[in-house]
Design a protein around this nucleic acid. Structure first.
Lengths: 325, 325
DNA sequence: TTGTAGGCGTTATCAT
DNA sequence: ATGATAACGCCTACAA
């Protein structure tokens, strides 16, 4: 493999000139340029990014740490990240926590060993230890973005969808369709998060009454257990705070001969392919996952370049109307 | 950041000893070991993999090149790869071709620049230029695996599901359920690939008659256009050679008041979450995507270690029975 | 506009 | 069992 030095020798210039020509765009004598270009082609030179990274003490690798990649929710965000990083010639590492069998600490160690240029966390570390972990990363001067989490600002860059707004939009939409008795169906979720949805409901209804709150598991078989409760409470519209659960609930409702949306409207939170292929197709609040990914990557790049950036970015959700509400 | 040298100095040994202690497991004086360990802890040493890579002329990064990651088909394979790589302490790069706006050549250049330890191609380069590209990579001594493609062996490691067997299994299953008049519904696909499915059908039926072949687009709206043809030909069972199309066709059939599986059985090729959330849930031929990923990664690792390995691996599909057939 | 020389942090070779 | 030294390929003062 030809190196910079080989090129330099072949073109009768110093390695330094070649390096500068290739990296910075400096002025160079036309004739020198031609000799360099010719040498590069002739020797089939490919630059060595590893050597460059060592010298510069920085890589062009950004790590995305997420629970699992074979989940549309995460892979859509990841795709957004990939899109932005590609545009700026950064490489993308994926670390699947559920798959990796590593402790937080070990993963972060990996980041340092590999000198990643930045880390994007997606939907992770819900326990208290996590903000400590992130603080570590920051102390090591590794740019971080924490995406997909709704939480108070604790000193590190944050990026999440506006869940209050999502809840408000959803509630308003259901009510505008004449559905006034609402239930919020959700998986086990921190109270803090639930509070955001309730706040959105409050803003939409302008009253102190609350929607029926129903906690469910994500198993298809178990979802149907909540249908009697919905019926007994003469619920007219359900806002399911998880897309897969929405799909399952919809299936169960259809099976129970409950007409959607006439007897009961179903609104899903999240707009992946799942909502589209559900029967009936789900009306949903789109949390803008790809956009979230794009913005996350931009935020990391800003940090790397030491540009100014807004440390908390909140994404505005929007309604996508289909058939279920 | 403390370096090896710092550790060495602090422990009163040479850098070389520390390096050997950390990497190879050599015999070392108990006392020396303690001093090293102590220094590492005290200085908070983290090894620099980039420097190591430069010196060793090898990285621990494996690249996966695929069309897009936000697609369950690819992300399941990727997750399998991730699982295996993680176990062996390799990092995973993702390159989304659809997103990257780069030519084949530019992507491969990227691989060389970054000295990736291996490349896994998934479902790519269907044009003729591709095998040339792969030949390039091989010439550069980069281990390669080409996954998810059914093609003759051309000198590089290959890995794909047994589509003939898939077709045979599917056909047999449908026939065993009393469905004898079958249609194969597929998106635009190379003749060569279609031939495999026909061969599977032949093996299952032991006759020269062919199933009805119906080419469709993947748009929900257009899928229903093929229903009249199915009905006119009094088709009893449909084998859809693409999971998403199967979901859409199923939707359309339900909407057309055709009972599934009584009036028409639907069999899907592929077993992602999509088949599970379809209504009715789709019986399918599982192509073993995660397994494909796991095996791909193993194949790359074998190459890296210069172990013997089987250059062509064919995965056996299996039927997963649900409701649609 | 171009060149010289040193070093990024590690490992390999050869020596002790 | 441990050390000294020289690379790996590149970038960057500083010098010319």
């Amino acid at each position: 493999m030809a190196t910079l030095k080989d090129i330099a020798k072949h073109a009768n210039v110093s390695a330094c000139t070649v390096s500068r020509y290739l990296n910075d765009d400096i002025v160079i004598k036309k004739e020198t340029e031609e000799r360099i270009l010719h040498a590069i082609k002739e020797l089939g030179y490919v630059r060595n990014v590893v050597a460059k990274s060592l010298k510069r003490k920085e890589t062009f690798n950004i790590a995305v740490i997420l629970p699992k990649i074979n989940n549309l929710y995460y892979s859509e965000i990841t795709s957004g990240i990939s899109q932005t990083l590609g545009k700026h010639h950064y490489n993308l590492y994926i670390y699947e926590v559920d798959n990796l069998n590593l402790q937080e600490e070990a993963i972060l160690q990996l980041m340092r060993e590999n000198m990643v240029a930045g880390i994007i966390f997606i939907g992770l570390f819900s326990d208290t230890s996590f903000s400590e972990s992130i603080q570590n990363v920051i102390d090591w001067n590794i740019p971080v973005v924490y995406a997909n989490r709704c939480m108070p600002f604790e000193g590190f860059p944050l990026l999440y969808p506006d869940l209050v707004q999502a809840s408000k939009l959803g509630t308003e939409y259901l009510q505008a369709s004449g559905k006034n008795k609402l239930a919020f169906v959700h998986k086990k979720v921190p109270d803090q998060l639930l509070a955001l949805f309730l706040e959105g409901y409050r803003q939409a209804t302008n009253s102190d009454e609350k929607p029926l709150l129903l906690e469910i598991s994500d198993e298809l078989e178990l979802v149907k257990d909540c249908i009697p409760t919905l019926v007994e409470n003469s619920i007219e519209g359900v806002f399911v705070l998880n897309e897969l659960s929405a799909v399952y609930l919809t299936k169960a409702l259809v099976q129970a001969n409950i007409r959607i949306p006439e007897d009961m409207a179903v609104l899903s939170l999240g707009n992946s392919l799942m909502s589209q292929i559900s029967t009936p197709e789900l009306t949903c609040v789109d949390l803008q996952n790809r956009e979230l990914g794009i913005k996350s990557a931009e935020m990391i790049l800003s940090q790397i370049r030491k540009e100014e950036f807004e440390p908390v970015t909140v994404l505005a959700p929007c309604i996508v109307v289909r058939k279920s509400a």
